[in-house]
Structures are given as structure tokens and as C-alpha cells.
């Protein structure tokens, strides 16, 4: 009895209420950690909501303003010089492209830029990876919140196209909900995955390079301003080189998908878009999660 008294005494003195080793199963702990990581991102997004809106809207607004308002006003030739009709059909090409590019920029900004910062001078990532869950889940939480922000930006951007244009210039929208509800989330995940790959591949000091060598070519050769089906006249000899070259660009499939979802204009076949986008999403996530793990663990 004396012995057990002593043991009890020692235990209470050395380990008071502070330390109770109650381990929760990893699955439960991971689930609540994921929830907390997403909640944290949501709170931060809410704090910066006006910055988010401005950041999301500024580029689509400028694109629509220049191409759909200024150009028709000054009679500068877009839309193949077909007057208001040609301008309207260019608007129909541009509007889904603007949605696609917004989704991509959201993925890059919300994940790649933040992550470069957290890996770089703030070192915040050091704390985030102490979350009681597998390390890949920390990166996955970033992808999910980045994808959600991409979807939110798609919702914000679409009405702009309806408002910002010159008189008589109209994009002919034809919303196909089953495509919107399946393809937009898939595109958001794929572009968030791209953000993860970029954010974990580039050193923080090389972010400028990333914009110059990756983001710009993707943007300009990603079918934002033209449909993939219309590229065939660009050829050397009999070879449609540009139409083939842009097939490596993930944004091409996103934009073509948006074209299929929001308009009835010609677009790449959906049975190409879905699997290729899914393949891009899977590849980006696999590479991004692997990079993330390598950056975090030694």
C-alpha cells in the first residue's frame, strides 16, 4: 500500500493535469485538422474579402473593357472585322476564356504565391506541418481551399462579361448546368494542383521567373482569346503546328471546357476534355504533394 501511495504521489506531482496522454486515432485527428486548416483559410479569406474580390475581378474586367468595349468603340479589328456580329462572336469566345483564366490565376495566386512565402521568409509552413495529420493532408487542404477560391472567382467573373461591353456587342451565353457543375470543380482542382506544383518547385526568390516563363506562355497560348478548333489555319506546310503545340497546355482544356459549359460555340470534344483534365489534376497533385513532402522533410 505504501508503495502504491508513493507511486501515486510521484505521478500526480510529476504529471499533473497538464499532461494526459490521450491519443486520438490518426483518422479522427486528421479529419479535425483538415477542418481547422480550411476554417483558418476561410477566416483569412473573409478578412481579406475586398482584396480577394478586387484581385479576382481586376483582370477579367480589364480584358472585357479593352476587348469588348474599347476595341468596338474605336473600331479596332477583333472578331475578324465582321462588325458588331464579328465582335459579338469574339465576345462569345472571350467570356468563357476569361472565366478559365480567372480559375487558373486563383490557383496560382492562392497557392503558389502563398506557399512560396510560407516556405520562404515567414517559415509559417514549419508550424502548419506540425498539425496532427499526415503531411500530404496539409498540402491537400491548401489545394482544396485554393480550388474553392477558384470556383468562387468563376462565379464572380461571369457577370462582369454580361455588364462590361459596348452597345450591340453581346456574348451568346448558353449555360449547360451539368457541364458547369462537373467541369468547373475539376478545372479548379487541376489549376490548384498546378499552383501547388509551381509553389513547391520555385524558390521564393525565383517567383518572378515563374511568371515570365510559365504563367505568361500558359496564359497567351491557353486559348483565352481563341478557340482551339479555330487554330487549324496556323500551319507550316500541311502541319497545324500551333494546334498540336497548345495541347500540352492545361489551360487550353480548361478554356475549352468553359466554352462547352457556358456557350454553344465550337469546342474540343468533351470526351477529350474530361479525361485529360482529370489526368492533369492527378499528375499535378502527385508531383505537388511529392515536392511538398520533400521540401518539408529531411
Amino acid at each position: 500500500m505504501a508503495a502504491s501511495d508513493v507511486t501515486g504521489d510521484v505521478t500526480t506531482r510529476a504529471v499533473p493535469a497538464r499532461i494526459e496522454l490521450q491519443l486520438r486515432p490518426v483518422l479522427t485527428a486528421s479529419y479535425s485538422a483538415l477542418g481547422a486548416l480550411l476554417l483558418r483559410d476561410l477566416v483569412v479569406l473573409w478578412k481579406d474579402k475586398w482584396v480577394f474580390v478586387l484581385r479576382t475581378v481586376i483582370q477579367p474586367f480589364l480584358l472585357c473593357f479593352v476587348f469588348l468595349y474599347v476595341f468596338p468603340k474605336i473600331g479596332q479589328g477583333v472578331g475578324g472585322g465582321g462588325g458588331r456580329r464579328g465582335e459579338s462572336s469574339f465576345a462569345t469566345v472571350l467570356v468563357p476564356g476569361v472565366v478559365g483564366i480567372s480559375i487558373m490565376f486563383q490557383g496560382v495566386q492562392s497557392i503558389a504565391l502563398n506557399m512560396a512565402q510560407e516556405f520562404g521568409f515567414t517559415r509559417e509552413i514549419e508550424d502548419r506541418v506540425q498539425a496532427p495529420c499526415p503531411i500530404w493532408l496539409v498540402a491537400m487542404a491548401k489545394v482544396l481551399s485554393g480550388a474553392a477560391q477558384g470556383a468562387l472567382s468563376a462565379v464572380l467573373v461571369l457577370p462582369i462579361a454580361a455588364v462590361v461591353h459596348a452597345a450591340g456587342v453581346h456574348a451568346h451565353l448558353d449555360l449547360r448546368w451539368w457541364i458547369i457543375l462537373t467541369l468547373v470543380p475539376l478545372a479548379c482542382i487541376a489549376m490548384a494542383g498546378l499552383g501547388l506544383v509551381l509553389g513547391t518547385s520555385f524558390e521564393p526568390r525565383n517567383i518572378g521567373l515563374m511568371f515570365g516563363f510559365i504563367i505568361l506562355p500558359i496564359t497567351f497560348l491557353g486559348g483565352t482569346y481563341y478557340g482551339w478548333t479555330t487554330l487549324s489555319p496556323v500551319r507550316i506546310g500541311g502541319f497545324h503546328w500551333l494546334q498540336v503545340l497548345v495541347l500540352i497546355n492545361p489551360l487550353m482544356y480548361v478554356n475549352e471546357g468553359m466554352r462547352a459549359a457556358f456557350t454553344s460555340s465550337p469546342h474540343m470534344h468533351l470526351y477529350v476534355i474530361y479525361p485529360v483534365m482529370a489526368a492533369f489534376a492527378t499528375t499535378f497533385l502527385a508531383i505537388g504533394l511529392r515536392n511538398f513532402r520533400r521540401r518539408v522533410l529531411a
Binding site: 486520438r24 479535425s32 481547422a36 476554417l39 477566416v43 508550424d127 496532427p132
Partner: peptide, 24 residues
């Protein structure tokens, strides 16, 4: 850790609060 790894986008109180949420 050696470096300051506080969450710069959260305030002081939130840094603690979200840690609690993170740990379930």
C-alpha cells in the same frame, strides 16, 4: 522552432485559437 513561425495573417489571439482547433 528557431524562427518565428506565427501565422502572419492571423492576429495574436487567433494564432492560439486556431492551434486548438487544429488539434481537435
Amino acid at each position: 522552432s528557431q524562427q518565428n513561425t506565427l501565422d502572419r495573417q492571423l492576429n495574436v489571439w487567433e494564432n492560439l485559437y486556431f492551434h486548438g482547433r487544429l488539434f481537435g
